[in-house]
């Protein structure tokens, strides 16, 4: 244990911390990300609870045949789910590369992860609006505000989509930092924290997929 005196103002005199076991080794940023994810998990929890209560109280699901609401395409979304899982794998590989300070591999795998995110978002656009092919759920009659079925679907999947968008941008910024050589020295904390967020988004999607599409 020692503490150095701050004598010269700017950027001098950091307090050097003791190596006491009870402080642990996780960085502040990593702990903050874990707590944020816990918190974020509760907001998804609130929305999924709303979905559960509304669905449990409905006589049928989708509720009203007269609305002619389309069923959700499971096959297509299963593909998206697979894409997201793959991007989690490349995220792990990027982190592994960062542990070894291998810039080339970090860039390669981060770029693949970002591509996975972009692919998922395009898939969601296709699902909602038929951006690339066919009609999309909205034109097929699944209208936001139309029924509890449509409302919960759009709120939960778009809230998740917002997370994918955030994660993709976040990873893209991390990618640029990697290209500039920020992680060459084997300091992989930044990539690990970004990875935590990405794995969380992935995990939540698997829950959303299970509850909304499969069940």
């Amino acid at each position: 244990m020692s503490a150095t005196v701050a004598e010269h103002g700017e950027h001098h005199g950091p307090a050097e911390w003791s190596k006491d076991a009870h402080y642990g080794r996780a960085s502040a940023g990593k702990i903050a990300m874990w707590i944020f994810l816990l918190s974020d998990g509760f907001s998804f929890g609130g929305l999924l609870l709303a979905y559960g209560i509304l669905r449990a109280g409905a006589k049928a699901w989708p509720p009203d045949a007269s609305l002619h609401e389309p069923h959700l395409g499971i096959n297509f979304t299963a593909g998206l789910t697979f894409l997201l899982i793959c991007s989690s794998v490349t995220m792990v590989l990027a982190h592994d590369a960062a542990v070894h300070g291998d810039r080339k591999k970090i860039i390669r795998y981060l770029a693949l992860t970002v591509l996975g995110g972009v692919g998922f978002l395009c898939g969601q656009m296709q699902e909602y609006f038929g951006l690339f092919h066919g009609e999309g759920l909205i034109k097929e009659g699944l209208v936001f505000g139309g029924s509890a079925y449509a409302n919960t679907f759009f709120v939960i999947t778009s809230f998740h989509g917002l997370h994918v968008l955030t994660g993709t941008i976040y990873l893209f910024i991390t990618l640029i930092a990697a290209i500039r050589g920020k992680y060459d020295n084997g300091n992989h904390d930044g990539i690990e924290i970004a990875g935590l967020f990405w794995h969380f988004v992935d995990l939540v999607w698997i829950l959303v997929f299970t509850f909304i599409y499969l069940l």
Binding site: D20, H22, I31
Partner: peptide
């Protein structure tokens, strides 16, 4: 809240045990 939690976990002075 995130700030408070992390600060208490990581920024206690040496010897400031729980």
């Amino acid at each position: 809240g995130i700030n408070y939690i992390v600060t208490v976990i990581r920024y206690r002075a040496p010897g400031m045990t729980w």
